[in-house]
Amino acid sequence: MLTIRLLTAVLGLALHGGLHAAPAFTLASTDMAEGKMMTASQVFHGFGCTGANLAPQLSWSGAPAGTRSYAITVYDPDAPTGSGWWHWSVFNLPATIHSVAGGATAASLPAGAVQARNDFGDSAFGGACPPAGDQPHRYQVTVWALKVDKLPLDQHASGALVGYLLNANVLGKAQLTGLYGR
């Protein structure tokens, strides 16, 4: 009987505006849009691609309570590798940071931020470069709100290892998916 009364009270509050949802954790970019083709600015320069190889501008808001740091990943699940392709992993971004500038590099990221090794073999952003003739690939840009101040990794960590620790420490994620094909 108590359960029914409690459920009725909660539903009543929800219907009459007494319960407020937490703000949504959202990600935006001036350089890319959800579900749209990316420009040459975010395309790799090499492997037959001739883009500018610039990380996209990103800004986020509405992180979950308790967020102590952020990470950013860019991942292509459509790469013909059997395990996708890690284009960028940045972690140990302070919780006070809510954006990164377009073209971000180690020099322009906040002190203490670490860029792990991408699948091109660099500890930096590596742009889109799917095989010629493939359907457009999806490039999942994710900002991770984390419950820890720092991940115990360095710039030599693989995308898979970074992903493992991100999933172990995540409070919330915000994502944009851009497309690119050639």
Rank of each mutant, 00 (worst) to 15 (best):
L2Y: 08
R5T: 13
L7W: 03
T8A: 15
G12E: 11
G12R: 09
L15K: 12
L15Y: 13
H16L: 12
H16I: 12
G17R: 13
H20S: 15
A21K: 08
A21R: 14
A22W: 11
P23K: 08
F25Y: 09
L27R: 00
A28E: 14
T30R: 15
D31T: 06
M32S: 02
K36L: 04
T39V: 03
A40Q: 15
V43T: 06
V43D: 00
F44L: 09
H45D: 12
G46F: 09
F47R: 14
C49S: 14
T50H: 10
G51W: 03
G51K: 03
L54H: 10
G62L: 13
A63H: 05
A63E: 11
G66L: 13
T67G: 00
R68E: 12
S69F: 04
Y70S: 01
A71K: 03
I72W: 01
V74W: 02
D78S: 07
D78A: 07
A79N: 15
P80H: 11
P80M: 10
G82Q: 11
W88Y: 08
V90W: 00
N92T: 03
A95K: 10
A95V: 12
A95I: 10
H98F: 13
V100R: 07
A101K: 15
G102I: 10
G103T: 14
G103R: 11
A104P: 07
T105F: 08
L109A: 05
A113N: 06
D119H: 13
F120P: 02
D122K: 11
S123C: 08
S123K: 04
S123L: 04
A124P: 04
F125R: 02
F125H: 02
G126V: 11
G127M: 05
A128C: 04
P131F: 09
A132N: 07
P136R: 00
H137V: 05
R138Y: 01
Y139D: 01
T142G: 00
V143E: 00
W144K: 02
A145W: 03
K147A: 15
D149P: 04
K150S: 14
L151K: 05
L151R: 03
D154F: 03
H156T: 10
H156S: 15
A157E: 10
A160T: 13
Y164H: 13
L165I: 05
L166N: 06
L166K: 06
N167S: 12
N169H: 09
L171C: 05
L171E: 07
G172P: 06
G172D: 07
K173D: 02
R182W: 04
R182A: 06
